[in-house]
């Protein structure tokens, strides 16, 4: 079988990201594979290592620089990679439609994709991709086991977690807790350079959602340090919260 893991190349969380005059400034950012996507690569590799006869294909949509994220996945152990090359898009629905065509071409039956993107903060790509393929999806997955074509997954829901059973094909969105992604070793990074990476131009439609501006979300904060020992600082804090900040509805106990 073929397992596809979808990857995105995003600014490192520690990078400086800010907005100026309505535009986004990423000039200070270094880019890495999205941490949320790594869980999917790891999961596919573990399933294969546990004896599943599967080819693991890393797939990314984006500009040529996305190749770096794909190389990371190859260095982790994916067999080959496909870059669907196209301009940066914001609308996950448009990207999903383009990716779905590749998933169909590859006759894959299992797709992993990160639960939430670190750049667009979007959790929509997985469900949208499943919809484009007319497949089921399982989101926010923390455990996934496959036997034949039957799977059992545990995923987070609004009030806790839930077990879901179903049959392939399925799109699974991944998150922390699913596994601990491995670091690529140096020999594997070298080997990854010789693994096949196929670049295709993306065939994308018109975006139905466009971005027209950016602003920073940083708020003015008081940044007041309350001095003194624990007791006097705590007493002062309670006074401030009741008084100037007015955020303590008193319980009065």
């Amino acid at each position: 079988m073929t397992i596809i893991t979808i990857l995105k190349h995003v600014p490192d969380a520690e990078s400086r990201v800010h907005a100026k005059d309505g535009a986004l400034d990423l000039s200070g950012a270094t880019f890495v594979i999205d941490g949320m996507d790594e869980y999917g690569v790891e999961q596919a590799l573990r399933m294969r290592e546990a004896g599943l006869d599967a080819e693991v294909v890393a797939l990314g949509y984006g500009p040529a620089s996305t190749t770096q994220a794909l190389r990371t996945a190859l260095a982790m152990g994916a067999d080959r990679a496909i870059l669907l090359e196209g301009d940066e898009l914001h609308d996950p629905l448009t990207v999903a439609l383009a990716l779905a065509a590749v998933v169909r071409d590859e006759a894959a039956d299992l797709v992993f994709v990160g639960g939430k993107q670190a750049d667009w903060d979007s959790a929509a790509l997985g469900p949208a991709l499943a919809e484009a393929l007319a497949w089921a999806h399982v989101d926010w997955t923390t455990a996934f086991a496959l036997e034949g074509d039957a799977f059992e997954a545990v995923h987070d829901v609004d009030d806790g977690s839930e077990t879901l059973r179903g049959r392939l094909p399925v799109v699974v969105t991944t998150q922390q807790g699913l596994n601990e992604p491995r670091y690529p070793t140096l020999p594997n990074i070298m080997k990854a350079k010789r693994k096949p990476l196929d670049t295709r131009p993306a065939d994308v439609g018109q975006e139905l959602m466009v971005v027209t501006g950016h602003t920073g979300t940083e708020r003015e904060r008081r940044r007041e340090m309350l001095e003194g020992d624990a007791r006097s600082a705590a007493a002062e804090l309670v006074r401030r919260l009741r008084g100037e900040a007015k955020v303590l509805r008193e319980e009065g106990r």
């Binding site: 007791r231 705590a234 900040a245 319980e251 106990r253």
Partner: peptide, 27 residues
Amino acid sequence: FKVADYGIVGDVLEVVPALEEALAGRD
């Protein structure tokens, strides 16, 4: 502390009980 309105530098194991105490007593 960069995003805090109010900050206390201290050990939570001391500050939290002190907070509970301050909350219990009305001023």
